[in-house]
Design a protein around this nucleic acid. Sequence first.
DNA 1: CTGAAAGCGCTTACAG
DNA 2: CTGAAAGCGCTTACAG
Lengths: 345, 345
Amino acid sequence: MSDARRVRSIDVARLAGVSRSAVSRTFTAGASVAAQTRERVEAAAAQLGYRPNAIARMLITRRSGIVGVVVSELQNPFYARMLDTLGYQLQSAGLMPLLFNCRDAHSIDDLLPKLLACQVEGVIITAATLSSRMAAECLRAGTPVVMINRYVRDGAASSVVCANQQGGALVARHLLDLGHRHLGFVAGIEDTSSSADRESGFMQQVLRAPNTILCRAVGGYTYQGGIEAGRDLLSGSTRPQAIFCANDVMAIALMDIATEAFGLRIPQDLSVAGFDDTARTMWPGYGLTSVDQNIDSMVEQAVAILLGRIANPNLAAERRLVTPELRVRGSTAPVRSVIPTAARS
Amino acid sequence: MSDARRVRSIDVARLAGVSRSAVSRTFTAGASVAAQTRERVEAAAAQLGYRPNAIARMLITRRSGIVGVVVSELQNPFYARMLDTLGYQLQSAGLMPLLFNCRDAHSIDDLLPKLLACQVEGVIITAATLSSRMAAECLRAGTPVVMINRYVRDGAASSVVCANQQGGALVARHLLDLGHRHLGFVAGIEDTSSSADRESGFMQQVLRAPNTILCRAVGGYTYQGGIEAGRDLLSGSTRPQAIFCANDVMAIALMDIATEAFGLRIPQDLSVAGFDDTARTMWPGYGLTSVDQNIDSMVEQAVAILLGRIANPNLAAERRLVTPELRVRGSTAPVRSVIPTAARS
DNA sequence: CTGAAAGCGCTTACAG
DNA sequence: CTGAAAGCGCTTACAG
């Protein structure tokens, strides 16, 4: 029933006594139509409830206005926040996000052909990595790809990443300045560049300082992983004075296990720092010191790169670093109980 | 450059020495093509890197396979989680979610015409309410609309909501069973049905019990709002023994302010319950008693309704209730210090 | 099983 | 400013 009533431009044209061209121009921004013609078309369109078929327009103009957005880990407030601003910024730029939720990282290669079939004008990928084979295919199809927070070796896809090493270094210097020498690190997912870069930035600074003791665990970026990592690090004979977790979720878990299972007070007995600064809004009660990745700025740059490459497909892929900032709060404090590190070194 | 190389079905047909029809059939599931023809077409397609243009297919088949998904408040883990499963389930059903992020609740009326122009086969709305004018327009266009967690008076749009009253009642009975008589409620956003229904379900039970004292504050579903509501309720002369917050975020805030600013121990001095059960994954350390809305089931039903109405546009809009479940954890406990309520009643 | 032809609903040079 | 005509890239009865 509803299909039968579908109004097309020809119906409007007939009612208004004009050509389909005139109808089309009335609904095309910047097209030249006489005021009187426009009025008659608009009246007829309103009467019939006409709305131009965007699919047909996409086909003829060869511009879909659609951007493929590949997300995953929406449970992580960091990525939820990212999708929030991303969706909003794309809309503001006149583009529509076609969402692809990729639960297992592998499935992204199956998703992309669908995206390309939809003639997306670009693809933005967050929290997942494109295989280089797929990146090459996008390149060949002339579809720009921008990854946020990940990058690929070959320059087939653009990327915007936080300067993770710098972020790790900021935390290290902060903890060292507070007098901590026995330090712990909790990695996220081992084979992600984000975790590896945060760690190397952190370690470089720590190893430069004298008489430091290091320990390390892996938490997979999850709460449960953070709990287990905390149990590991805190049950050793000499407990670290300060622990840096590669994201906030793990830091929160670590604070929970430290206070509940080990009876530690934070920051008096243990300083804890995280990464993402999602704790500011999600866990304000913890007062977690963290590294702010500046999500808005990252997303802005990603959209800017995409728009640039849509406007000029000959532009090469580019990589941009966003500078992180340390947000110091109550979870880190000057070292208190001095452990006899000299005896161990 | 890239556009020049765009491969169409005719190119494949020529290379394979067949008609465009044969090419089309090769890429249409269930179409009859001779094995040999299919092979030749597939070889030619692979050689040219051909991929059918989904936009053109949408136009001719009049099926876009696109579902408009209107979201907001992605910062709230409840809605982030909902979008996560929603995106996944739509994909599994062969539909593609076109995302519209609507920051201010009003903008939804501007969004919908765009959605309809894209010939979406349906619309799913979460955390926002469609105006009845727009609902009527969708009805007229024959585009089914399903709202999750909201509903409209007239039956123009389908909806799936949690049985919020029942959820509120579950909490009330739980707290009453624990012996609490002086109870507080923290509302979310006043004019949402979710908050109002949770409140009325809670209140009905409480008022049925003898000698109860009630207090109330509004928290707008946010952390900051929860802090202020907590300050309000806890600074009165007779403090409530148990507080029910209309969502988890506010409950977490209330626990924070209760322990930090008022030195209360939870649950010894104060029992707290929330709604959504997002605390289970987001704030496991708080052990918050909460009402599980069963997101997966809600989303499943919404998608089922949508699929049904896409398959048969004559189906009427329907409304479904999802049964919530109380998850009891450590934030609620039997009443301890008995306040002399008799003197006040 | 296969191909020629019509058509989805629109836009856009082109000539007037 | 306006309209007739071509065409975007595909699918699908239809006849063979």
